[in-house]
C-alpha cells in the first residue's frame, strides 16, 4: 500500500537524510513484482511462467490485466514492473514513446524472432484456391483476386489487416508499391479478436482469406503460410526514403522494465535480463492453452515443470 508506507518529505528536509542511506542493496524487495496480462494466450502463460520463476527465487508476484498498448505508460510510472512481450511492429511505437518520456528501460530481446506479415491459412494452400502461393506474384492472378473477394470489397480481393494502431498504412502502401492496388483493397480489423473470428469462419467454410498474422502464435499449430514478398532491405520503408515494395523483416521481441526494477529487485532483474524464449517455447506455451485447452495457470505450471533445464540456469547468479 503505497499511500500508507510512502512518506512525503519536502526537498529540503530530505537532503539531511540523504547522505546516510546510499547503500547498494543485495536483497530483493519483498514488495510484489507486478506482471501484466494481456488478452492473448502466449502472453498470459508467459506471464505466469515468469511469475513462477520469480516465485521460485522467493519473490512475490502480482498480476494485473492491462491493455497491450496502454501498458507501457503504466510500466513507465511504476504501476506495472515489467513487460515481457514487446512486439516490434505492433507495440514498438508505444514502447519507444514511453521510453522517450522516461521511466522505462529496454531489457533486451528474446531469442525468438517474430514475423508479422500477410499470409493464408493452411486450407487455402491445400485447396489450391490461389495457385502459386506463397509467392506474392501469384496474387496477381484473377483467380486469386476472386478467391479473396468479400461483400464489401467491390470486385477486388480483400486483405484483412490488423487494427490501424499496429502499423499505420504500411500494408496499403506496400500494396500500392507492388502494383496490387487495383486488384486488392485493405480492410482494417478493429481487434485481434476480429481477425480470429474471420479466420475461424473462413476455415469452417473453406473459403479463401488473406490476412495479417504473426508468428509465434497459436495459429502456427494449424498451419499458416506467410506470403513471400520481395525481401526487406534497409531503406525500403517510406520513412527511410524507400517505396515500401518489400515484405516485413524478422522483428524482435523485447522485454521492458520499470527503471527502478534493477535497484528494487536486483536478483529478479538479473534473471529477467537473462531470460529469453525461442519460438518453439512460446509456441509450446500457447499450444497448451489453445490446443490442449488447459487453463493459463495450469499451462504455466506444466511448462515450468517440463522445462526446468531451460529456466533454472537463469536464476543462478
Amino acid at each position: 500500500m503505497k499511500f500508507l508506507s510512502r512518506k512525503l518529505f519536502v526537498t529540503l528536509l530530505g537532503a539531511f537524510f540523504l547522505s546516510a542511506s546510499h547503500l547498494a542493496l543485495a536483497k530483493d524487495s519483498k514488495e510484489p513484482i507486478v506482471i501484466p496480462t494481456h488478452n492473448w494466450s502466449s502472453q498470459i502463460v508467459m506471464a505466469y511462467v515468469i511469475g513462477g520463476i520469480f516465485e521460485s527465487m522467493g519473490n512475490r508476484v502480482d498480476y494485473k490485466s492491462a491493455d497491450s498498448q496502454a501498458v507501457y505508460e503504466s510500466v513507465r510510472t511504476g504501476d506495472i514492473t515489467l513487460s515481457h512481450e514487446v512486439w516490434q511492429s505492433a507495440f514498438g511505437k508505444s514502447f519507444y514513446n514511453a521510453m522517450e518520456k522516461g521511466g522505462l528501460i529496454d531489457v533486451g530481446n528474446h531469442e525468438a524472432l517474430t514475423l508479422e506479415d500477410l499470409g493464408v491459412p493452411k486450407h487455402v494452400i491445400d485447396a489450391n484456391l490461389c495457385p502459386g502461393l506463397p509467392d506474392w506474384e501469384a496474387l496477381k492472378q484473377q483467380k486469386c483476386v476472386d478467391a479473396f473477394k468479400t461483400a464489401d470489397s467491390g470486385n477486388k480481393g480483400r486483405i484483412l489487416e490488423g487494427p490501424q494502431t499496429w502499423h499505420g498504412d504500411l500494408i496499403p502502401n506496400r500494396i500500392k508499391a507492388l502494383g496490387l492496388a487495383d486488384k486488392y483493397v485493405v480492410k482494417f480489423a478493429g481487434s485481434a479478436d476480429a481477425l480470429w473470428a474471420e479466420l475461424a469462419s473462413a476455415k469452417k467454410d473453406g473459403r479463401g482469406i488473406l490476412m495479417f498474422n504473426w508468428t509465434p502464435n497459436f495459429t502456427d499449430a494449424d498451419g499458416f503460410s506467410f506470403i513471400k514478398f520481395p525481401p526487406y532491405y534497409d531503406g525500403c520503408r517510406i520513412a527511410d526514403g524507400g517505396d515500401e515494395a518489400c515484405g516485413s523483416p524478422d522483428g524482435w521481441l523485447k522485454k521492458a522494465a520499470y527503471y527502478k526494477m534493477p535497484r528494487k529487485w536486483p536478483a529478479a532483474y538479473t534473471t529477467f535480463s537473462k531470460l529469453s524464449f525461442n519460438t518453439t517455447q512460446i509456441g509450446q506455451m500457447a499450444a497448451l492453452v489453445d490446443i490442449d485447452k488447459m487453463s493459463h495457470k495450469d499451462a504455466a505450471k506444466k511448462w515450468l515443470a517440463d522445462n526446468k533445464k531451460v529456466w533454472q540456469p537463469w536464476t543462478k547468479k
Partner: peptide, 9 residues
C-alpha cells in the same frame, strides 16, 4: 516533491 522510497533507500 521528494519521496523517500525505503525499499531502495
Amino acid at each position: 516533491v521528494q519521496i523517500y522510497d525505503s525499499e531502495i533507500e
